[in-house]
Simulated scan of single mutants.
Amino acid sequence: MSPSRSSDSPPAPQPGVPPRPPAEVRAALLALDRPGTPCTVRDGGPEGVDVVAEFVLVKLTKDGLFGRRQYCESFQVQLRLVPESYEVRAVDVHTEYTLSGDKPRRRTTSRSRGQLRKKLVGYEFTPGTRERRETYRFDSHDLKAALQHAVAAGGWTWHPVTFGRL
């Protein structure tokens, strides 16, 4: 999921390429969800949008006196297809939250919305040594680049949303 981009502007559709129907653009976006990748691309019905691309990270898990507690972080790109103008409107949502108890309840601790850039890298230390090994790497730039290329290939434009509704 990481086509390279030389600039920060989203790719434009090729001139002369007719825009594809919304169902085909949506299918192309959902096709980016592949096993073995750290991100998922899924239907955005629960969030009230068309498609959601998401990276979820469980940062720390503790077993304590009051049960299990997980500290988590998620980064979402929420997408809405606007067929009238052949554009995909996108907003980023970063959330840090805690899951606690036997039947996990979610408590949000912080939430950001807009056009965000997030880089996350995790390491695992080798027992008995000072060596560390990278266990995961996430850059929101790579995730959005893959989404933008799928949109442009369908003849649509990418419209980032900072304030307001999708």
Score class of each variant (00 low, 15 high):
Glu124Lys: 12
Leu79Phe: 08
Glu134Lys: 13
Lys103Gly: 08
Ala152Val: 04
Val93Leu: 08
Thr109Val: 15
Pro104Ser: 10
Leu99Gly: 11
Cys72Met: 11
Ser100Thr: 11
Lys144Gly: 04
Arg105Lys: 12
Leu147Asp: 13
Leu120Gly: 07
Ala153Ile: 01
Pro127Met: 11
Gln148Gly: 15
Asp139Arg: 13
Val121Arg: 09
Tyr86Lys: 14
Thr108Glu: 11
Phe138Tyr: 05
Leu116Thr: 02
Ala145Gln: 05
Gly114Thr: 04
Ala146Glu: 06
Arg80Asn: 08
Ser100Gly: 10
Tyr86Gln: 13
Gly128Val: 08
Asp102Trp: 13
Arg107Ala: 14
Lys62Thr: 12
Arg113Asn: 00
Ala90Met: 15
Gln70Lys: 15
Arg133Met: 08
Gly67Lys: 10
Leu116Tyr: 02
Thr157Asn: 03
Val88Cys: 12
Val161Ile: 15
Glu124Trp: 14
Phe163Cys: 11
Ser110Gln: 13
Arg117Asn: 06
Glu73Gly: 06
Val93Trp: 01
Arg105Phe: 05
Tyr71Gln: 15
Arg89His: 15
Glu96Ala: 12
Asp63Pro: 03
Asp142Lys: 08
Tyr97Ser: 00
Pro160Trp: 01
Ser112Gln: 15
Glu124Arg: 15
Pro127Phe: 11
Leu147Pro: 11
Arg111Tyr: 05
Tyr86Thr: 14
Asp102Ser: 11
Arg69Val: 09
Glu96Gly: 13
His159Leu: 12
Glu73Phe: 00
Val151Trp: 05
Gly67Asp: 01
His149Ile: 00
Pro160Phe: 03
Arg107Phe: 03
Val161Thr: 11
Thr108Tyr: 01
Asp139Gln: 02
Arg130Asp: 09
Val93Ile: 12
Pro160Asn: 04
Thr126Val: 15
Arg68His: 02
Thr98Trp: 03
Pro160Leu: 05
Arg105Leu: 09
Val82Pro: 03
His159Cys: 13
Leu120Ser: 13
Asp142Thr: 02
Phe75Asn: 03
Arg68Gln: 11
Phe138Asn: 05
Gly122Pro: 07
Ala150Met: 06
Ser112Pro: 02
Arg113Ile: 06
Thr98Gly: 00
Arg111Ala: 04
Ala90Ile: 05
Glu96Pro: 06
Gly154His: 04
Cys72Gly: 06
Leu143Met: 14
Val77Glu: 05
Gly101Met: 15
Gly154Asn: 13
His94Phe: 05
Gly155Ala: 12
Val161Arg: 12
Arg117Gly: 04
Gln70Gly: 01
Tyr97Phe: 14
Ala152Met: 03
Arg130Pro: 04
Asp139Tyr: 05
Gly154Phe: 06
His149Asp: 09
Pro83Asn: 07
Ala145Thr: 10
Glu96Gln: 15
Gly64Ser: 07
Gly154Glu: 08
Val121Tyr: 06
Ser85Lys: 07
Trp158Arg: 13
Leu116Gln: 07
Glu87Trp: 01
Asp102His: 14
Phe75Cys: 00
Leu143Gln: 09
Asp139Val: 05
Leu116Val: 07
Asp92Thr: 03
Leu99Arg: 14
Ala145Leu: 02
Phe66Tyr: 13
Gly64Gln: 11
Arg137Tyr: 02
Lys119Pro: 03
Ala146Lys: 06
Ser85Thr: 15
Gly128Thr: 01
